[in-house]
Amino acid sequence: MASAPPQRPPARLTVLSGPSGVGKGTVVAEVRRRYPAVWVSVSATTRAPRPGEIDGVHYHFVDDAEFDRLIAEDGLLEWAEYAGNRYGTPVAPVRERLATGAPALLEIELQGARQVRARDADAQLVFLAPPSWSELVSRLAGRGSEPPAVQERRLAIAQAELDSSGEFDVVVVNDDVARAADELVGLLTAPSPGHVRSSGAHE
């Protein structure tokens, strides 16, 4: 009598984070385009949809009451407030995906990445960095005609986020979107080193 095939062990969760304006969404969109088999978690948010955004594809758009319910029922792997809105990762789809032995990718802010590390020590944290500080300043300044005080606050937050790169396992420089996407997918599919983590030193 043939024995049942062994179950695949859960895959490793990979988290992509980095400062605002570094191009996280652009790199993830390129990953989706070039590697459609890669599963990317869809976050829940209390902010209103932007033109062209589709509920369940770009975000799960929920009201404050629903977000409060998710928090109360431990339905979020992580959550954070950013620019007056809350964002969080529904935990059930992520667990279901990892249980199949297939990798999962989260694109979240720094606060969320820290929460994931606290809950899952084996998660792989990837920091997306700009080619230079001046490039990041240029990208943030090009986002619209914001008052100088708002721009200064954004830059201060971005500098603090850049300073946190040492908390991550790997740093990927977004100097070319296609190359960064390829590197990220390579990290997603690399075998897990178990409980061995880098010391935080990066080239």
Rank of each mutant, 00 (worst) to 15 (best):
66 E>C: 10
143 R>L: 04
36 P>V: 02
104 A>L: 02
166 G>T: 13
133 W>M: 10
188 L>W: 01
104 A>I: 02
84 G>W: 05
9 P>D: 13
97 R>W: 06
18 G>M: 02
35 Y>V: 06
52 G>R: 08
185 V>C: 05
2 A>F: 10
127 F>G: 00
55 D>P: 00
91 V>E: 01
84 G>H: 11
121 A>Q: 10
139 R>E: 07
67 F>G: 00
76 L>D: 00
35 Y>M: 07
115 Q>I: 08
12 R>C: 00
53 E>R: 13
142 G>Q: 07
130 P>A: 08
167 E>C: 00
91 V>G: 06
92 A>W: 09
170 V>E: 08
143 R>F: 03
37 A>G: 13
47 R>C: 07
17 S>Y: 10
101 G>H: 04
13 L>F: 01
177 V>A: 07
166 G>E: 09
60 H>E: 09
187 L>C: 09
94 V>G: 04
154 R>M: 07
86 R>V: 12
202 H>T: 02
169 D>Y: 00
109 E>K: 03
63 D>Q: 08
41 S>F: 06
70 L>Q: 14
183 E>L: 14
199 S>G: 10
109 E>I: 05
192 S>V: 02
135 E>R: 01
32 R>D: 14
52 G>F: 02
194 G>D: 07
11 A>Q: 05
180 A>M: 11
130 P>Y: 00
151 Q>Y: 08
11 A>G: 03
149 A>W: 04
130 P>F: 01
72 A>V: 06
146 E>N: 11
132 S>Y: 07
118 A>E: 12
5 P>H: 07
172 V>R: 00
199 S>C: 06
4 A>P: 03
61 F>M: 03
118 A>L: 15
127 F>K: 02
136 L>R: 05
20 S>N: 10
116 V>E: 01
8 R>G: 08
181 A>T: 01
67 F>H: 01
36 P>G: 10
68 D>Y: 10
85 N>H: 15
1 M>S: 15
16 L>Y: 02
142 G>R: 13
135 E>T: 14
70 L>E: 08
60 H>I: 06
116 V>A: 01
198 S>K: 06
